[in-house]
Structure formats: C-alpha cells, structure tokens
Simulated scan of single mutants.
Amino acid sequence: MRRIPWTAALLLLTAGCTTTPEAACPAIGTPVGIGLTVPDPAGITRATLEACWGDQCVTRPADLFPETAAGATTCTGTGPDGSCGASMVPTGGLRGFADIPGLPAEPVRVTVRFDDGKPHTVTVTPVFSHPGGPACGQGGPQAQLVAGADREIRPR
C-alpha cells in the first residue's frame, strides 16, 4: 500500500476550500438624527425638531434647503467609452436634517415647529442605516419625516 506524505494530504484537503472575499467598504460616516422633507413649503422657511425618548428630550434646528432631484439624462456613445450625465433640478420642496446625538433605535416622539410655532407631533422609530451595504456594518440610527399639506408630520 502506498502512503501519501502528510504535507501532500494537507495540500489536497485545503485545495478545495474557498474563502469569502472581504467587502470593500467605504470610509464614510452616518449622521445620527432625523431628516425632514417639506414638499409644499408655502410660508415655511425654518423648522425645529424636538425628539423625546425615555426621560430626555433634545431640541435641534433642521436647516431647510431647496430639495433637488435628478433631471433629464443625456448619454454620449453606447460602448465602454460612452458616458451619461444628469443635472440636479429643484423640486420646489425643502429638505433638512437635525443632528440628534444619542438618538436610539426605539420609538421617539418628535415635535416639529415651523415658522408659526405650532407643534406637529408624530412617533417614529429610527432605524440603523447601512451606508456601505449590510456587509460593511451599520451606521447610526436615522428617521425620515415628511410634512403634508396641512403641515401634519408622518414617517417617510
């Protein structure tokens, strides 16, 4: 009977093994907080968000900026050397974000006040984002809100 040397046997055993390649993850951060979209901003120039959970509340401004979306796409060429581009165009809405340190991934009562100071309240549960995909780990918790026609606030 012929014997295989132990180094050759080990080589044969490991030759069939494969490893999963590591994910290439971007080195980007995720802001922790609450985003706000105001599609019809008539009379709105500013917003303040108060977020409450447990026994604490945090009040932060949500600086509002014109919202944009991708416009028409133009392409040149169809092969590997071709390229496409799109310009950003205003939507007419406003968009903002309030940084809220310590925001948990559990129900949070959020009160939004616009220029008139009237409170608009909703409960939302922030979720952890994955900016580089699930293989890259999670970022901080975020929630997204949208203001309706009567300034009522709802989760997006």
Rank of each mutant, 00 (worst) to 15 (best):
R109E: 15
A105Q: 06
G137C: 06
A86R: 14
R3W: 13
P21V: 10
P39G: 10
I34N: 01
T68V: 13
F128A: 11
G140I: 08
P107H: 08
S83K: 09
C57W: 08
P90V: 05
T7Y: 15
P31N: 14
T121R: 04
M1K: 10
L10I: 13
S87D: 15
P131D: 06
H120S: 02
G43Y: 07
F65H: 15
G102I: 04
F128Y: 14
E22S: 13
A15I: 11
V89M: 01
V38A: 07
R3C: 12
D115C: 04
M1A: 12
A98E: 01
F97M: 04
T74L: 10
F97W: 03
C52G: 09
T7R: 15
G148Y: 02
S129N: 11
D81C: 06
A147I: 04
F114Q: 00
T78M: 10
L36N: 06
T74R: 14
A8G: 07
A8M: 14
G79T: 09
L11S: 15
T19F: 11
I34F: 01
A24G: 10
S129Q: 13
A9N: 03
G102A: 09
C17A: 13
E106I: 05
L13G: 11
A70D: 12
L49Q: 00
G133N: 11
R154S: 13
E50L: 08
L94K: 00
G79M: 08
T68W: 01
V38H: 07
R95I: 06
I4P: 04
C136I: 03
P155F: 08
D116R: 09
L36Q: 05
C136Q: 02
S129E: 13
D55A: 12
P5N: 11
T74H: 14
T45K: 12
A86V: 11
G137Q: 06
P104S: 12
D81I: 05
V110N: 03
G139P: 05
T37V: 15
R46I: 03
A27G: 10
L13T: 12
C25M: 06
I100Y: 00
A86Q: 14
